[in-house]
Design a protein around this nucleic acid. Structure first.
Lengths: 200, 200, 200, 200
DNA sequence: AATGAATGAGACTTCATTCAT
DNA sequence: AATGAATGAAGTCTCATTCAT
């Protein structure tokens, strides 16, 4: 008797704002998405957005905090593992999963770098990425092998979006990207290890 | 008697607009750079910009057309070469050079993807990138090897900017990035070749 | 078990609203003080303000009614006294006291005249001031002496705030201001009296 | 021909903005006057205001700079005169004239003190007032006499506006206000002088 | 080759106020 | 006695663009 939209939705407006906003941010970019547009799509007024978030930027911060938790957890986990090849491969695998789980957010981050740089989440994200990088890189490794690790990360990122407009089974594609990235960290690991103690 | 800035600059305003605009676009992003800002930096009025360019977007098109010629040339050249390993390695090498030669433009393209997508240069750039990709990829190659080629390109792109805030000799870094990218296409080539006719 | 702030404050919210509001109104001005700010400082919601007051303006009316009673009493008292010099001097003395007793309110009235004019308290205050003025001025007195009386009142008002950022003992300052104001009404009285019946 | 409003007014828009703005600021207060209102009254768009002034505040600064010049000149002049009674009386006389010449501005300053305090012109005005005060006050004078000088200035200010809603010839009123103010500085001067060397 | 003046659209944000609970 | 959620109106400001000169 009261399952109307209005009624059912009471209480979840904050979440709905974030959902709609992320959709639009990812699709059109941050600056080209206006609060008017978000509000209209939710059928509320702009002022309602300001009841839930202090600024446009805070909407994005909210989204980021919610969706980047898996990434944070991964980094925390990585910090406590030994720097073995298996660990590194597992990091890549898990990161690939984290990316897939929050694809719109990461797509947004990738396609709006110039914008993100000036926003609060810019620093946050950069810190996380550096954390990830350091969990893959051996500081005394060859520069080339260090680049391989960074390249592995970027391959995962880019793979997600560039490949998305290719024909072919997405799952297969993800697997292929993952393999290339894994390969890169493996080579990087062997390289450093090899120099210390050559592989058999 | 007339070697003043004003005098000497007569006639090169169009070029100066592009220079300043690219600097600001790369530094702040396209949307966050206003024509007012560009004009102020050149010490002319906004209206003057409209004498030289029909719209804001056309300024960017002009920049892109001027600076992406080496990339275009590379693609044209690549189209006429046999798809040998050496060719592919040469493509990577030359593309690395092209990127370095127009760093601000490519940095801009990378950091403003969401914006660029809706602009005329979005299509142009995508077409060029696909051309490049196709000059590296063997269509019947393994998906993993195809990803390796794309990864090689992205490694070059990303390498340029991510590494830029690392300490260390930039030349050395560029060399390292180039090596990783070359490695990737080499592996990709060996992979496909290997399946058809195993390497000696 | 219940001497907490929350508990102890039950029932005095209305007064606390007025206190905080007056503080902010006096400090920042009426328009620049938002209900949000008042509510936040009290750690209640804006809606709570509306439980106690119908509008923002009514908060101010409440403050004014409470704090301007001494002024009203003074005027009522003055109305029943003979228009002697002693009475006038006493009015000035008492008004000086009234001002000091409700300094933030009067400071607010002085610094927000443009705003107050459009509010209900504008009329109220004007009426009171005219009442005061008429208790000091002899209608048939010289225009100059009439001005002296008005000047005495303004001297008291302004003295309060302009002198406040001077160095020196505030009590001494108040006394000096009071002396000048008293002097002015005395001169005014002598003037009119003198013309009607010269002083001995 | 071309004596239309549009044509005739080209070039004086900046001045017209200031005129209209001052009128509205004085009548309604600064915050209650919106740029929309100013623009509508001038039959231009809000954006046109921003072509001539960077912010709402700058409109006010422009007005203040233009209209407070006589006051500034007076202070400069005063600084070079000997601190005689005649000088002080002349200062009062000239200041009275300056006030009358820019009545709307001074009315605005008086009725919007809370607002003005936070604006750029707040500091400017305060500085000027202190300059004026110091040209009237002998630093070693009695506190009461110092108050008399300040009172003289406030009498002039207040006189202008409070008396304005009295019946009676405005010229006569101004003369009366001027007499009271002059009287105050004269007494102040005699007081200090008297203590040093008693009047005959 | 460039300026001065202006526009129309729209951005983000804030405010006082309301009302069901 | 007070909250949570929301609204409608309005505010200041910025932008790309135009056009007569």
């Amino acid at each position: 008797m009261d399952g109307t939209k209005q009624q059912r939705r009471r209480g979840d407006t904050r979440q709905r704002i974030q959902d709609v906003a992320l959709g639009l941010f990812a699709e059109q970019g941050y600056e080209k998405t206006s609060l008017r547009e978000i509000a209209e799509r939710l059928d509320v007024t702009k002022a309602a957005l300001y009841y839930h978030f202090k600024t446009k930027e805070e909407i994005l911060v909210g989204i980021f905090e919610d969706l980047s938790r898996p990434m944070e957890d991964l980094i925390a986990w990585a910090r406590e593992q030994p720097h073995t090849l298996e660990t590194k491969q597992e990091i890549i695998r898990r990161y690939s999963e984290a990316l897939a789980g929050a694809a719109p957010l990461f797509r947004f981050m990738q396609e709006n770098q110039a914008t993100v740089r000036d926003l609060r989440i810019g620093e946050m994200f950069k810190t996380r990425m550096l954390g990830l990088r350091d969990s893959l890189i051996d500081p005394e490794a060859d520069l080339v092998d260090q680049v391989r690790c960074v390249s592995a990360l970027f391959t995962l990122h880019a793979g997600m979006f560039v490949l998305s407009d290719l024909e072919g089974d997405p799952e297969e594609q993800r697997a292929a990207v993952l393999e290339v990235a894994t390969d890169l960290v493996t080579q990087a690991h062997r390289g450093s290890a090899g120099r210390a103690a050559p592989a058999p």
